[in-house]
Simulated assay, not measured.
Amino acid sequence: MSNASLVIANWKMNGNRALTREMSEILRDNQADFKGVKVVVCPPYTLLADMAGHIYYDEIALGAQNVSQHENGAHTGEISVAMLQELGVEYILLGHSERRAEQQESNDSIAAKAAAVTQAGLTAVVCVGEDKSQREADKTWSVIQAQLEQSLAGLSAKQMARVVVAYEPIWAIGTGETASPAQAQEVHAKIRGWLVENYQQVGARVPLLYGGSVKANNAESLFSEADIDGGLIGGASLKGEEFSAICRAAKG
């Protein structure tokens, strides 16, 4: 039986205005099938306003793929939390492995962004995960623990109540290779233990998402694991019926 309660679509650098309309219509038509599951769509910045308009009356939340830690000022090309709030954004992805690799985002930078997001009352979705060489060297947990310790550094218990942790093994992102439910659950259980140890009751309630080649045909088995509370969906979130099927799997 599914334990999932949150499914987030990460469109990455994909999509157009037509897709915002198409996706919103498909989700609206299927909404009754996954009632009770929080569904969030994170399109590129340029599509946020369009998506916000299409889902205004629906039980679909809007998310962004990144944000600046700065409130305002001389930061060309950056987008602030307040700017995203004005568009109706509720969730913000932080520290995705692609940004860690391509933009050299550090754990310290992610921690500063998480502080800004949660202080504003929005939800920070903090991504962690190991690459293939780290997994093969049996360093999975040491890598993830360091990411958690540094990326969540300085957050109060009140702020942690506004945090979601997404485990995305880098070797499974966009590769078609997925961690088995047992592999994913093993890591999620360790993350849960660390959160409880450091944040007690608040840590026990932090949603834990799995991401990495999640599709309609494997979502149900992943979401049935005890410590997997939902999914962060990449490529499959660009296909309306596929994404709706994943959301249905979350409801179980």
Rank of each mutant, 00 (worst) to 15 (best):
Y57V: 11
N3P: 09
E241V: 04
E168Q: 04
R135P: 14
G231I: 09
E86M: 08
Q147H: 07
A4S: 11
G176Y: 12
R99T: 00
W171S: 01
Y56K: 14
R135C: 06
T118N: 06
H54S: 06
A111C: 03
V202I: 14
E242S: 07
F243H: 00
E186D: 05
A226I: 10
F223K: 02
G95H: 11
L238Y: 08
S68G: 06
S24W: 01
E130P: 05
Q119F: 14
K215R: 15
F243W: 13
V81T: 05
L122K: 12
D227M: 14
F223E: 01
P181R: 01
E98M: 07
Q31R: 10
Y91K: 04
L238N: 14
V206P: 07
D58G: 06
G252N: 00
T123F: 02
V214L: 15
T76E: 11
A179G: 10
V81P: 12
N3V: 10
T118S: 12
K215C: 10
A112Q: 14
A114C: 06
R135Q: 08
K251H: 04
R17T: 15
A49F: 11
V143Q: 04
L208S: 05
P169T: 04
A115R: 14
H54A: 12
G212S: 11
V40H: 09
A184H: 02
A111I: 15
L155G: 06
A204G: 03
G88N: 00
V196I: 07
R205F: 15
E105Y: 14
A161K: 00
E71T: 07
Y57D: 13
G15Q: 04
A4E: 13
V128S: 03
V126H: 02
L208H: 11
Y210W: 08
E197M: 06
P207N: 15
Y57P: 10
S213C: 13
E78C: 12
F223G: 04
W141N: 00
G203S: 13
A137K: 05
N30L: 08
Q69M: 14
E197L: 09
D50Q: 15
I228V: 09
A124V: 12
A184S: 07
L209F: 06
V128A: 10
